[in-house]
Simulated assay, not measured.
Amino acid sequence: MSTTNQPSQPLLAVLWMMGALASFTSMAVAARELTQEISVFQVTFMRTAICLALLSPYAWKLGLAGLKTPRIKEHLGRNIIHFGGQIGWIFGVSVLPLAAVFSLEFSSPIWTAILAAIFLKERLTRARVASVTLGFAGILVILRPGSELLQPASFAVIGAAICFASTYVFTRGLASTESAFKIIFYMNLIQLPMGLVPSIPLWITPSVDLLPFVAVLGICGISSHYCIARAMAHADATIVSPLDFLRLPLIAVIGFSFYQEPWNPFVLIGGAIIFSGNLLNIWAEQKTHKRTV
């Protein structure tokens, strides 16, 4: 079932997912360009500042009463972890082939299944166990012994994927009382000083040539999530999610064309294995859901 009561509209879902793919790809390129000149912390701060500026008009409309939350501790915990994920992801983008970063990032739903079983007591079904197994197999293909990717930056990206998975688990709990806007607003509000403080001693004013990349990073940080939400509103996850895999060949082409990154078949194969595990889990969840409706 789609996430809303409206009829499924696969074409619209595909178009929204194309917007999401463009946003994620643009973010990676912008982060790569910016980290050639400024620190990872400063990149994170500037991204958060732009996102917060874009969210502020609606926050102003809601007012203090509309933004008030009794769950500030949960927001704080969620965003400390998410900030660590952002740092790991941007660091990975700055030094690893872009296709490798995206492939390892696909493991995030695998970690979500593990963490949900531990902290939310969700049952590890056979499909989820198979999904987790495929995820680990894909990681081993990418980070096989002797691979040039067997380095700290790769483990930073895996750490980022674990952090993002942790925030998904946090979000499941917060979503019971907090709106999506409030979760996103507090994410940027809390992470703003977290990025600013370590940026100050390393601060470098970006050159004029980098300013468009600063804007792209901030705008796409919001548009990527919005496009995915809209896509999910128009079609089932089983239709939308496979399109997300197109990020991998797309970023591989960009890495090859603009950064002379060689094609690595093990990265593409490993990414495909990891993603197949994600799809297996989604298919099983959809099947279970339809039986219970």
Rank of each mutant, 00 (worst) to 15 (best):
L11Q: 10
L11R: 14
L15W: 13
A20R: 12
S23Q: 05
T25N: 13
S26Q: 08
R32Y: 08
T35E: 13
I38V: 11
F41D: 02
V43H: 01
M46S: 04
R47V: 06
L62I: 02
A65C: 00
L67M: 14
K73D: 00
H75F: 01
H75T: 01
H75P: 01
L76S: 01
R78M: 00
I81K: 02
G84Y: 00
G85M: 09
Q86K: 09
W89Y: 15
F91C: 01
V93S: 09
S94E: 11
L98G: 07
V101E: 10
I114D: 02
L120H: 04
L124Q: 02
T125L: 12
T133C: 12
A137V: 09
G138V: 01
I142T: 04
I142R: 08
L150I: 06
A160T: 08
F164M: 12
F164T: 04
S166P: 03
G173D: 13
T177H: 11
E178F: 09
S179R: 10
A180I: 10
F181Q: 00
I183R: 01
Y186W: 04
P193L: 03
G195L: 02
I200L: 10
P201N: 02
D209L: 06
V214Q: 09
A215F: 09
L217T: 10
G218S: 06
I219V: 15
Y226E: 04
I228Q: 02
A235M: 14
I239M: 10
V240H: 04
S241Y: 07
D244L: 15
L246K: 08
V253K: 03
G255I: 05
F256V: 04
V267D: 01
F275K: 04
S276Y: 08
N281Q: 15
A284M: 03
E285F: 12
R291W: 05
V293W: 10
